[in-house]
Amino acid sequence: MTLSTAPAAAQDLSTDQLLEAYRRMAKIRKFEQRLHLENQTGDIPGFIHLYAGEEATAVGVCMNLKDTDYIGSTHRGHGHCIAKGCDIKGMMYEIFGKQDGLCHGKGGSMHIADLSVGMLGANGIVGGAPPLATGAALTAKYLGNHGVSVAFSGDGGSNQGTVFEAMNMAVVLNLPVVFVFENNGFGEASGADYSVGSKDVAGRAAGFGLPAVKVDGTDFFAVYEAAKDAVALGRSGGGPSVIEAKNYRWFGHFEGDANLYRTKEQIEEIKRDHDPLKIFRSKVEGLIDMAELDKIEQEAEQEVDESVAEARAAAEPTPDQLTVDVYKNY
């Protein structure tokens, strides 16, 4: 089995699909750009890691999934959450640590989860998702429901032993899991060309007996097509596979990172030449009215505005919540 290396043609998707893909990408962009500003107010506790610039990868993958399919995410998880259908307001409340957040303010940015839409959680442990997603795939295989799971990791996470173990076990047990590596070039502040010994994340897959493909992670259509094949492979009992998506991270590793490992010019160049939303627009020209895409962006911005205003005004968790939900019964 080989996975498609050619991008899908825009006309292969319905207008509704195209608009939905853009809606999810625009929501991610607006969400992250706003968080970049909100974080500077000092009102958001802890660490946040922004996904802006990588929108096409999360959305290209998740447009192939159903609510009953699971994804495991990373510390840079907002994009995966939105792509998989998590509620933006619930997310914003959570990031501000409020009682009505998706995790009642107990998880925060790095642990946003919503199992009802198949989101197994952002994960503060690098390389955390692959074993868990492998387990979700075991459930799907055992129940025979044709479900698929996706494990997102970065280039940094690709070096973790958990990832190697999960890939091998997924092959041994022939599980429907797709390992997606978002290679944005940096694990925190260390270059992937330094930390990935072979300098080839996808190339490792062959050693595990896994089909793999490298795609342009900023091109929704390239990711969508590769993921379509990988997901179909899993659903049909064909087992696991690997997608490496080359990406560019617009912001620092975390908010507050001075980005000293790259120049301002490089970042401007990334934003100019590798903007997944711009690339999407160029590919749907003639098929979709650009005014519709503008409207989607405005709606996304409005939704984010509202979610910030509401989240800021929302109630903190009450003291009695401190030890609630450690166990189901204790």
Partner: peptide, 10 residues
């Protein structure tokens, strides 16, 4: 990890 992932999914 797989056991945890399987447990939380059913």
């Amino acid at each position: 990890g797989a056991a945890a992932g399987a447990a939380v999914t059913g």
